[in-house]
Simulated scan of single mutants.
Amino acid sequence: MMKSYKHAYQGFFSQHPETLHCAPHSHHYWPDCTRDAQLAYWDDSAKGVDHKWDIIFGERVPDVQQHLARLLNHPYPEQFVFASNTHELLYRVFSSFPVTQPLRVLSTDSEFHSFARQMKRLQERPQFELVTIPTEPFATFPERWRLAVEQGSYEVIFTSQVFYNSGVLAPPLEHWLPAVPDHTLVMIDGYHGCGAIPTDLSQVAARVFYLAGGYKYLQAGEGCCFMAVPKNCQLRPEYTGWFADFANLAKPQQAQVAYANDGMRFAGATMDFSGLYRLQAVLHWWQQEGLTVSRMHAYVQQLQHEFLQIIDELEHPLLRRERLLAPDLAQHGHFLTFKLDHESQVSELAQQLADTGVATDYRGDRLRFGFAIYHEAADYQRIKKALRSN
């Protein structure tokens, strides 16, 4: 059994000594190694001044690309492109489709707010159509999803790896991707999966756009997101910036806008790369400690099992195992979601926990508990104490 790594997060713990942080799915604590990385970005900026881009694109970016490729078993490190957020990358892909042509998209009702908002706005176009498949009931979703894939003709299919509003894993790619026509672009939102769920993209790297970032389980904070772009992709995003042809910046510009022949064709423009430095530090630390995603996932699954045992012992009228949205822990990411009867019950229970130093988060009638390698099973006794004392 892997040990807790609580000792590696002392910078954050020192600021919240009385808090049990059960919301790493919302904003993960950063390990201490990221502080030195933040300073390294300052030092490289001071050292390079106008030429810091040579350091960033010549040394830092390729190193992080290599680490991400190993993490996700992706054969093409050069196909990883970075941006401040995944939405920026998402919209670059959508901007590759002419506005005047029909655009039909298949997705679910459980995608993150930015995607849902963007799709709602695009639906104001007369040529745009969104087909939405409800994820609940979860037991029948894989069958309903595959049926939708088989029956429709879409330009884009977009779904999460782990659904943000439930923690439930989406159907494995191998169950439905073979039914997708070659002309359909497939995008996977891996934000709640990357760094939490063992992920192998080796067989789909030439087919799938995979989006994720440092804010959640990669533990590097905001400002560094990435997309793995299929090899030999020739899309020409309309929403583009000077990074997208960085290697040819000094050459005479062609009549037609040119793009890099790798993932960088989806790059944007000037951004703060301190998040990439922090991500680099986390990935180096994981490698040094032998912290594979499989090891961390097994540790979190054990924590979830012991957490639910404590919930069973508590015998709370609302916070009960049968309130889980999905009972099978094998089908969860790194947070568990309890569905109550009313939104007021959720907000009151979340506030009750917060008043005793237990940080959770909630959406409507759903209360979410997240798990991390800076937890120990004994920590969850605080939940029992907090709810029994009120």
Rank of each mutant, 00 (worst) to 15 (best):
K3G: 05
Y5P: 05
Y5L: 10
Q10N: 08
S14M: 01
H16F: 11
P17Y: 01
L20W: 02
H21R: 00
P24A: 05
Y29V: 02
W30P: 02
P31C: 02
D32L: 02
C33P: 06
R35I: 11
D36K: 02
D36Y: 00
L39D: 11
Y41R: 00
H51K: 07
V61H: 00
V64R: 00
R70L: 13
Y76A: 10
Y76F: 15
P77T: 01
P77Y: 04
P77A: 04
F80K: 01
F80H: 07
N85R: 10
N85I: 10
T86A: 09
T86M: 11
T86Q: 12
E88A: 14
F94M: 15
T100P: 12
L106N: 11
T108W: 13
F112W: 09
F112V: 15
R117P: 08
R121F: 15
Q123T: 14
E124I: 03
E129P: 03
P134C: 09
P137C: 09
F138R: 06
A139W: 00
T140N: 08
R146P: 11
L147R: 08
E150A: 13
G152A: 08
G152V: 05
I157A: 01
T159S: 14
F163L: 07
Y164K: 02
S166D: 06
G167I: 06
P171S: 04
L177K: 07
H183Q: 15
V186A: 10
F209T: 02
K216W: 09
E222L: 10
P230I: 06
N232Q: 09
C233F: 00
L235Y: 01
L235C: 03
G241Y: 06
G241E: 09
D245C: 01
A258T: 11
A258M: 13
F266A: 10
F266M: 13
A267W: 05
G275V: 07
L276A: 07
A281C: 14
Q287I: 00
Q287F: 04
T292P: 02
V300H: 01
E306L: 11
Q309C: 04
I311Q: 03
D312L: 04
E313P: 10
L314S: 09
L319C: 12
R323T: 13
L325W: 03
D328V: 15
L329Y: 08
G333P: 11
L336Y: 10
T337A: 14
L340P: 15
L340G: 06
H342S: 07
E343D: 12
Q345V: 08
V346T: 05
T356E: 14
G357W: 05
G357T: 07
Y362V: 04
G370C: 05
Y380L: 12
Q381L: 15
K385Y: 08
A386L: 09
R388Q: 15
